[in-house]
Design a protein around this nucleic acid. Sequence first.
DNA 1: CTAATATGTGGTAACGTTACCGTGACAGCG
DNA 2: CGCTGTCACGGTAACGTTACCACATATTAG
Lengths: 340, 340
Amino acid sequence: MGITLREVAVRAGVSPITVSRALNNTGHVSTETRQRVSVAVAELNYVPNAVASSLRSNRTQLLALLLTDVTNPFWTTVARGVEDGAMEAGYGVILCNTDEDQVKEARYLDLLLRRRIDGLVVAPTTESTEVLQHLMRRSVPFVLVDRLVSGVAADSVRGDSRGGAYDLTMHLLQTGHKRIGMISGPPTVSTAEERVMGYLDALREGDIPIDVDLICYGPYREGWGREATLKLLSRQPRPDALFAANNFIALGVLEALSTQCLRVPEDIALVCFDDATRFAVGGPFLTTAAQPAAEMGRVAMRLLLDRLADPGRDLQDIVLPTELVVRASCGCKGSTEYPN
Amino acid sequence: MGITLREVAVRAGVSPITVSRALNNTGHVSTETRQRVSVAVAELNYVPNAVASSLRSNRTQLLALLLTDVTNPFWTTVARGVEDGAMEAGYGVILCNTDEDQVKEARYLDLLLRRRIDGLVVAPTTESTEVLQHLMRRSVPFVLVDRLVSGVAADSVRGDSRGGAYDLTMHLLQTGHKRIGMISGPPTVSTAEERVMGYLDALREGDIPIDVDLICYGPYREGWGREATLKLLSRQPRPDALFAANNFIALGVLEALSTQCLRVPEDIALVCFDDATRFAVGGPFLTTAAQPAAEMGRVAMRLLLDRLADPGRDLQDIVLPTELVVRASCGCKGSTEYPN
DNA sequence: CTAATATGTGGTAACGTTACCGTGACAGCG
DNA sequence: CGCTGTCACGGTAACGTTACCACATATTAG
């Protein structure tokens, strides 16, 4: 129950190291020997033992992806990108759900360090600073995705939150909206801040006076979307448009509007960050600044692989552009066709 | 860069084996020794090397989850359940996307076998038979989730497709619908067959004549939902209700109906298998037979752990009940409230 | 009081692979 | 001819842990 490299070597009439070299394409092996080895491998049905290899070579070819919630479609798409990139490079990926819970995060990290993973991609929570510094101390390479964390110097990929928010807000202004309520994420999360900044950029450019009562911060969650909507609707004069800073918030906004019998876009317009197209029952409807989630994942993996290849290289912070996707919810004649 | 167990042993003034025993709670270690060991561990910041442990003990404490698409919310929920269960038992999970692609499936499996994973949970595709038999030959324990595969004897968990389909169909009959179009999945997939059987059970019980022209099979995909809807709408007399055999098909149905300017439920009723609540923009709307996806994942993991503990035990096939969730799409006064 | 069992500890040898160093053989070059 | 360099392979020794066996001492049973 487990053919070893040694047995393959015996059968091929060479030494174990030669077999190792032939299989890993390291060093020089003659074509003929390589041939004999591969025959022996096939005959014996040999499956290399990556555990032994890892122990000796001190590389596990295992990476990890730490994120806050696999059930969020944005993250699963990122995960796909990460995984595909890893697979191509011969790495496996362990996926871990932190659930924004520090205890779980720490437990996972401990397990991963025991397993001697070669590196990880992290979607940090607000409180990740300590955990990440722990990683730095142990000099385990990692890449931040989507968010930056102050006090942590690492490679990173993220969407252009400020630019995307600017685009969305500008679009609302151009379609005649003047009082735009901004429902953002946690003030401690970099993306929430930047989306507000993009929103402010557009207002300033459009010479719209800024009303701080129209800007609110809270968790990136459905419940917060509902709550904030009700709050904003009570402002006088009532906003004529809402900006949801992520897809979950947008869901909450829609629910709250529906309970208030307000139609979108007839009574009030809505735009949101992130794309939630895929699971929109009734076809896509929301005007969004879509982030290239799969691309983000792939780029994150590339950064990680680059760093593994050269630990001394300069840090990179890659900002991917968002795409303004105009649909019906903003009130202009947006396309309601289904892509493909 | 890597404190070893040996160094801990020296510091604690005991032998390496004793340290091993103390850390793993195997064998007998006095409270005092245990104390000294844990002090030494803390002082040296020792992190056990799971790779070495795996090599020696022949157990990696790693499991894998093979599924067709992480971006499908049903599967991510299953994945959550699997992962949580694994985590509790001290196992790590490697998540792999097969994309219904045999080549990718085979490649992943090879990687996983090299890594000597202890077992896996598989959401099989139609063509998985060969791959699974390969696993059986290598006697790697695995559990099937959601679907059965003929010719493969293994532990399995799945939803009660037949019962759920019966419930949905019966509900449509009770609310006055008589011509129900059934849009099912691939005839080779067990769930598609069973959902049709449940549908037939209800029709027979309701003394409704069966019209085979109203039953169609195709892939569990959005595109098929669109296509099949158009086909069924051309039947004479037109169906007064549609049954979508999964969530993706339901999305396609909704799109097709929207292009035909047919309103749900006013012009035609719709029910579907699977719950897509979470990402339904505008609030939940579809009447469904909800499968307990997270539960399925947890049960799958339990079965796998049980088998790892006792490889000789009898095979189990666990069928979880579905829950009929009545909402607006079937035309009766369904609740449209949002669950928490 | 002897035998059997539980408790606490250690020595030695693997697990299967690759890092490191070494040895020829042969070609090219001045 | 000697010198250097690339190719093709092998021997030995780890990597860090635990399985297996051994051996005390303490406790209990018969």
